[in-house]
Computed example of a mutant assay.
Amino acid sequence: MDLLWLLKFQLKLEVESLALVAVIAWCLWYSWNQVHLGGAQQSAWHIFQWAWTYLEEFQLANHLPTQPRFVSEVLWSPPKPLWFKVNIDSAVFSSLKSVGVGIVVRDQWGNVAAAMSKLVNAPLGPLETEAMVMEEAIQFARDTGFLDVIFESDSLSMIQSLNGSLIPPASIVNIISGSLQAIRYFGQVEFVYVPRTGNKAAHGLAQ
Rank of each mutant, 00 (worst) to 15 (best):
G38N: 07
A137I: 02
N174W: 08
L127V: 06
P123M: 12
I172F: 00
E56F: 11
V15T: 14
D107M: 03
A113V: 07
W26Y: 10
F48M: 13
A115T: 15
L37S: 06
L20V: 02
M132A: 13
L37C: 06
A115Y: 14
I103G: 05
D143N: 15
G39F: 04
G204K: 14
L124K: 05
Q10P: 05
H63P: 09
C27G: 04
K97Y: 08
W45I: 13
S94K: 14
P123E: 08
W109A: 10
S171H: 12
F186Q: 03
V35H: 06
F140I: 08
N163S: 15
F58H: 07
L3R: 13
F84M: 09
P195S: 05
G110N: 05
L162Q: 02
V104E: 00
T66Q: 15
Q41R: 11
W52H: 14
S153P: 07
A141R: 05
S17L: 10
G125C: 11
S155I: 02
L18M: 04
V92L: 11
S161R: 00
L3N: 10
D143V: 12
L119N: 10
D143M: 12
E128C: 09
Q160H: 15
A19L: 11
N62M: 09
E73M: 14
P79L: 03
L147Y: 07
S117W: 07
E130D: 15
L13S: 01
V105L: 09
V21Q: 03
A22E: 06
A19K: 05
A22L: 10
F191P: 00
V92I: 15
L147G: 04
F191D: 01
K8H: 09
D107Y: 03
I172E: 01
L7M: 14
K85S: 01
K8Y: 07
L18F: 03
R196T: 05
K8P: 05
I172A: 01
F191H: 03
P126F: 02
S31K: 01
A137P: 02
I172S: 01
S77D: 10
V120Y: 01
A91Q: 11
W32V: 07
N111F: 11
Q59V: 10
F58V: 05
Q34N: 07
W32G: 08
K12R: 15
K8N: 12
I138V: 15
A22G: 08
R196S: 05
L13I: 02
F151M: 04
E14G: 07
A170P: 02
T53F: 02
K118W: 10
